[in-house]
Amino acid sequence: MPDAATTDRYDTDRNDVDEEFTVDLRDRTFAAVFAWLLPGAGHAYQRRWGKSVLFFTCIMGTFLFGMYLGSGKVVYAAWGKTSDERRLPYLLQAGVGLPAMPALVQANFASRPFGSFMAPPRFPGPNEPPFVARELPDGSVEHYKDELAYWNLVIDDFELGTVYTMIAGLLNVLAIYDAWAGPVMALPDDRRKRKKDGDESDDDAGDKSSKKTPAP
């Protein structure tokens, strides 16, 4: 017996909602996975082309703008022992799916197959000399505690770029939910008010079941 969720259709034709539409969610699990892999891909799978373009443009635009602000250094994965060596923002950045996956490859292969792209910064060990950034024209060299300290110093918008890419990942979580369950409809004012008053128990239960009814 197929999962009812795979044949769900999202029907809204009530008079008290100012939108009338039918959305075929198709296989919502696949849609959610696709939506995670590439922003908008889940909606393209569901043939919701407008929202697919919207999500892809907004989320990838935010992600790429963050990468631009951070000179391409803000998305990397690192799980070291110190707080500096742990890149917690990556947990959110990974929300955009495949576009952030090179960072995982870079973090887990010492050979760094993608070169410096999304590569984690170098952290010299306790008995190693500090990170040498570059040689200056006068022959002297710049030393920093580690490569991350160097990035924070020379990239003006390193933190801002990090925030942008994190928000892109979080926005894609919303898109994933939308691909899986359809849009979250707001209750009309009178219905919301009655629910707030606590006298809508039976009616509300019926309303919820009507939002996602199996296709006939």
């Binding site: 919207l54 892109a168 849009p183």
Partner: peptide, 21 residues
């Protein structure tokens, strides 16, 4: 820097609440 972020967040949030443009 607020402008692109505000645009993206507003559109994505609104798109999770409605289906039509």
């Amino acid at each position: 820097h607020l402008v692109p972020l505000l645009t993206a967040v507003s559109l994505v949030y609104a798109a999770t609440r409605h289906e039509l443009l």
